[in-house]
Design a protein around this nucleic acid. Sequence first.
DNA 1: CAATTAAATGTCTCTATGACAATATATATT
DNA 2: AATATATATTGTCATAGAGACATTTAATTG
Lengths: 236, 236
Amino acid sequence: MNEKEFLKNYDIHDFDVPLCTVDMSIFSLIDGELNVLLVHRDEHPSKGKWALPGGFIDLKKDKSTEAAAHRKLKEKTGLASGYLEQVETIGSPKRDPRGWSLTVLYYALVDISRVKLDDSDKPTQWWPLSKIKKEKLAFDHNALIDITMTRLHAKATYTALPIELMPKEFTLTELQTVFEMILGRSLQAKAFRNRVLTAGMVEETGNSKIAGKRPAKLFRSTKADRDTYFARPLQE
Amino acid sequence: MNEKEFLKNYDIHDFDVPLCTVDMSIFSLIDGELNVLLVHRDEHPSKGKWALPGGFIDLKKDKSTEAAAHRKLKEKTGLASGYLEQVETIGSPKRDPRGWSLTVLYYALVDISRVKLDDSDKPTQWWPLSKIKKEKLAFDHNALIDITMTRLHAKATYTALPIELMPKEFTLTELQTVFEMILGRSLQAKAFRNRVLTAGMVEETGNSKIAGKRPAKLFRSTKADRDTYFARPLQE
DNA sequence: CAATTAAATGTCTCTATGACAATATATATT
DNA sequence: AATATATATTGTCATAGAGACATTTAATTG
């Protein structure tokens, strides 16, 4: 039997295969807090619970796993671009009542001012992390968010990735606050500014922002941040 | 319809699902060179080509994706433990002629002296990386190995992970050589030794090895290496 | 016993981070 | 208008780990 004949006889439906999905933690910054986009499930299983956006790979549309993730990001937020990264694939027989299931977990960081929520399909809502912690989400999605947070935390110690959450113009104090939020501890202003500036990850826009007292200079991302690493990670 | 009824009617065979596999790059150190374990394919597709060990998830046996990887490692090398890490999940409609397929890629680092190859199933062989580069492997497995090498390279700049490749006792010069091989460049002996020693990743065994000239002290892993990070990554 | 060679260490420079003090620039208050 | 106040921003110093390179140590070989 040659390969052509083999393929003709091959039918995946003859085998026991796992359920296979793509799920995504989409992070944004709203009122100084990290938010994650959740979708309300109006069908079984986990009906009535909130879940991460995601679902099955579309074998016709999706050209890759990442493309599937980009499609879902686009569907929910309207964003065709944006930072997207694969975190991990989690699979087990218990995480979905339908049977052995596996999900490829991604996360995205978006600038909330560019998002246009599409609520037409299913109710979609931004949830602050603090509120999520008290909520029992669908499937193992609480755990998935925890895994993503661990990754984001790690990344914030050696890259400037959190810049992706910022609007076009932002002050360094604002950026520092976001890092502090993700890291769960306070940072030294001088060290933080040196770090970000000498690495060339941000540049002044020339504008400034008067938030009350002394005006703060506004910066923009240089877009070097996605793949530029700090010379050294944060200590501790 | 309640969830119980829903699940009763649910049949995954009703849907178009991707092929789902686990593949693994198993690295070892043989005659001072990095080797990867390959399996000869005696069935379609990619019949006659060499491939990474891997295959379908066993929905009955495997309790998780990682358990599936551990099972395959055990089957091929006899090793029940050992360093194992998920790299990435790669999926696309083109990588397998049978259709949309997705593989969860793992890699393992093993001490060759502990391995007992099981050749009974399919012909299994260690291939030096240099030889693999000239060979057209099954599916996209050349690319999978490249992806793994990139990860291993990165890890070697900020962790002592390559220690997992070493035998029980080894000299620091030998260890340095392994790092140099993975990184593709030479390192400063003094800096390398300071790094590894101050981080507490290795400890003297008290023995020494006479390889010709001045005897070299032998060290063992303190097993802190798996999750201990160097204070700073290597420069450049 | 000198030459040789690999192992191991000494010493110096450099640089990014951390700690903390000091200064700058706006508004609010008197 | 001068002062208080709060946030933004910078100055200065200590520390530690990495890189560079020279030097010493301990074995074998002739």
